[in-house]
Simulated scan of single mutants.
Amino acid sequence: MRLRPTRRQGPSDTELATAWQVASLLLGYPDEEMLERRPLFRRAVEGLPASAAEPLGRFLDHLDATSLRDLETDYVATFDHRKRCCLYLTYYAYGDTRKRGMALLRFKRAYEAAGLVLDEGELPDHLAVVLEFAATGDLAEGRRLLLEHRAGVELLRLALTEARSPWAPVLEAVSATLPPLTGRDEDAVARLIAEGPPEEEVGLAPYGGAEPSGPVFLPDPVLEARSS
């Protein structure tokens, strides 16, 4: 009898948490603190599977070669001025409809169940927040939220790739940590590409009374531990 090595089925929980935490931080608004963390990012990425490490490494190379002012300008032009590059996941599935407000509540309740709360005035479906929650709060629940909005993650990746955005590799790394698209998700992506997100006059009334007319761009959200 010959012994065969066990085939790995995918990244470990530790690798997932590391990849998601790094991606979360790299999707935040660029600042001096982000640049100072580059050596830490490099060390973290070294231990990841190549499917995540290689694209994250490409983005870190971009950080090394780009001034902070140019990073800031490009970030605003990419994520604040292009609806297809919106970082708020529920926008892709629900657009500005009442259903989006209910979806936001599901995110908020998931964070609260893990003992975490967002700063006031921030929406809980920002991809950086979801990744941070998955990495540091509840990996299984965070993964479920990501899979629930798998089509939105894929559409964002495609939009960034089409725009040749330097942030495209970060989404490539995130996608590499998730299962391949199913037929249902592929259909959803094709529909979103063809039609765009749903539209409705009502907006986000079920979530805190806010009624934005498009994707809502907020300062970088940060999860905080709930005080006892």
Rank of each mutant, 00 (worst) to 15 (best):
L3P: 01
R4K: 13
T6S: 12
R7L: 15
P11L: 04
P11A: 11
D13Y: 01
D13G: 13
E15G: 03
W20C: 12
L26E: 09
L27F: 15
G28N: 11
M34H: 05
M34F: 00
L35F: 01
L35Y: 01
R38W: 02
L40V: 05
L40Y: 00
L40S: 08
R42L: 01
R42D: 00
R42H: 02
A44E: 05
L48E: 04
P49E: 09
A50E: 14
A52S: 15
E54T: 08
E54A: 13
P55R: 05
L56N: 10
G57Y: 03
F59C: 04
D61G: 11
H62S: 02
A65Y: 00
T66I: 00
T66R: 06
S67N: 03
S67K: 05
D70H: 10
E72D: 03
D74W: 06
V76C: 00
T78M: 07
R84T: 14
C86D: 10
Y88I: 02
L89E: 08
L89G: 04
T90E: 07
Y91N: 14
A93W: 02
A93T: 11
G95W: 12
T97R: 14
R98I: 07
K99L: 13
G101C: 08
A103M: 09
L104C: 01
L105E: 01
L105I: 08
F107H: 15
F107S: 10
R109K: 15
A110F: 07
Y111K: 14
Y111N: 15
Y111I: 09
E112C: 06
E122F: 10
E122K: 15
D125K: 11
D125I: 06
L127R: 07
L127S: 04
L131F: 10
A135I: 10
T136E: 11
L139Y: 09
R144V: 01
L147W: 03
H149N: 15
H149L: 13
R150F: 06
A151G: 11
V153S: 06
E154V: 08
L155Y: 10
R157V: 03
R157C: 12
L158S: 11
A159S: 15
L160Q: 07
R164H: 07
R164I: 01
R164N: 02
S165F: 00
W167T: 02
W167M: 07
E172F: 02
A173V: 01
P180D: 12
P180A: 08
P180M: 10
G183Q: 11
R184F: 05
A188V: 03
V189G: 10
R191I: 03
A194N: 04
E195I: 01
E195V: 14
E200V: 00
E201N: 06
G203A: 12
L204S: 09
A205H: 04
A205C: 07
Y207P: 01
G208C: 02
G208L: 13
G214P: 00
G214K: 08
V216F: 09
L218D: 02
P219E: 10
P221Q: 07
V222T: 09
E224W: 04
A225H: 10
R226L: 14
S227R: 14
